[in-house]
């Protein structure tokens, strides 16, 4: 009987200890102050600029949506037609132009290359696009590309940035999974 009372007390004591230790955990500090300044859209990508260069033949494809999702719709701007049977060097830039100077998001993508991949898809079958850069695991990222045109044609070019895709993949975004950070569609013409 004495032992029972003792064990009951021990349990009560243990329960008390448990309760009070958790209470201390619960009261951990949470002291972010209030500031009147508002948040800039640091994560926003306002601009996708794909520049294709072959000597002096430079074509830029640009999407710009300065107020982000919602607000005014984004706009597409293609500087001119591409030349048939030509090899271009492609470079993509993602910018946040609400910051001054504009924030280069491409650098973040490059830093986290193993978690990102650009995919280029075109409806003009003569065009081939290859990725020239690799991440730390040896898989393509797609910031630097080689863009080779064939015969003349008209169609569109879709550029996607996929976050956390399956890597390596078969080169198509459909089978890469992940979630889409960028998806823009440019009308292009090869002549």
């Amino acid at each position: 009987m004495m032992k029972n009372i003792k064990s009951t007390n021990t349990i009560k004591l243990l329960a008390l200890l448990f309760v009070s230790s958790l209470a201390f955990v619960g009261c951990s500090s949470d002291d972010d102050g209030h500031h009147d300044d508002h948040d800039h859209e640091e994560e926003l990508i306002t601009t996708v600029r794909y520049t294709l260069t072959n000597g002096t033949d430079i074509v830029t494809l640009e999407f710009q949506d300065l107020d982000g999702e919602g607000g005014a719709d984004g706009t597409y701007d293609v500087s001119g037609p591409l030349t048939a049977n030509t090899t271009y060097t492609g470079a993509i830039k993602l910018l946040n132009e609400t910051e001054n100077p504009a924030d280069d998001i491409t650098l973040e993508v490059e830093d986290e290359g193993d978690d990102h991949e650009f995919f280029y898809t075109t409806t003009i079958s003569d065009i081939t696009i290859s990725k020239n850069d690799i991440d730390e695991d040896g898989n393509p990222i797609g910031i630097a590309t080689t863009f080779v045109t064939g015969d003349a044609g008209t169609g569109s070019l879709i550029i996607e940035l996929i976050h956390e895709p399956t890597k390596p993949n078969d080169g198509t975004s459909i089978n890469a999974g992940g979630s889409t950070d960028v998806e823009v569609t440019f009308p292009i013409q090869v002549q």
């Binding site: 949506d65 999702e69 919602g70 984004g74 998806e183």
Partner: peptide, 11 residues
């Protein structure tokens, strides 16, 4: 529908 950098989105 609105056009964004992530493609078209329903509003």
């Amino acid at each position: 529908i609105t056009t964004t950098i992530r493609g078209a989105f329903p509003v």
